[in-house]
């Protein structure tokens, strides 16, 4: 067993130092070392997207990132999406559109949707389908997920517009 290393990173806005083995993936460290189990494991080889987190704002499959690569990075996981006790519009849209059945894929979809809407605040259905093709869902047939994503975009726009009016 190789010696454990210290990794300094930021998770959901909190800077932390963690101890991990060089061979541990970010997914394993999030789930097993830090008990951030909202990030799910479906395949551990990059094919399902259940483990998606944002690393410096970009979506990554955390099963293919070594924890040591998180040194100095800023990470966001599903646990950091709701702010101050309020759900994010994406989460609200997933709930109201019944976009989850078993819910195991949901954290990954929400993280990918967050990244999509940052890159492209107003995606078409086709753009949403393309962007989310790396996230597998076996329960929903994607219909309600895609609707929730398009609905999220509208909610975010509305929230931004309201904010602008306020200031």
């Amino acid at each position: 067993m190789a010696k454990k290393r210290v990794v300094s990173t930021t998770i959901n806005g909190k800077s932390i130092e963690l101890l991990c083995e060089p061979r541990q993936t970010l997914l394993e460290v999030l789930r097993d070392n830090l008990d951030l189990t909202g990030t799910k494991e479906g395949c551990s080889n990059g094919n399902c997207g259940a483990c998606t987190v944002l690393m410096n704002g970009r979506p990554v499959v955390s099963c293919l990132v070594l924890a040591m690569e998180a040194e100095g990075a800023s990470l966001e996981t599903i646990e950091g999406v709701a702010q101050g006790g309020d759900l994010d519009p994406i989460q609200q849209a997933f709930l109201e559109n019944a976009a989850l059945q078993c819910g195991i894929c949901t954290p990954g979809f929400i993280m990918s949707t967050k990244a999509l809407l940052t890159e492209n605040p107003n995606p078409t259905e086709q753009e949403a389908r393309f962007y989310l093709a790396g996230n597998l869902c076996r329960c929903t047939g994607y219909d309600k997920i895609i609707r929730a994503v398009l609905d999220s975009a509208q909610r975010r726009q509305a929230a931004l517009a309201a904010e602008r009016q306020h200031s």
């Binding site: 789930r31 189990t37 990030t39 494991e41 599903i78 709930l95």
Partner: peptide
């Protein structure tokens, strides 16, 4: 629903 969109729901693993 809220547990499942916030990652709080506990699955077997």
């Amino acid at each position: 629903g809220v547990d499942k969109v916030t990652g709080r729901a506990r699955y077997g693993a």
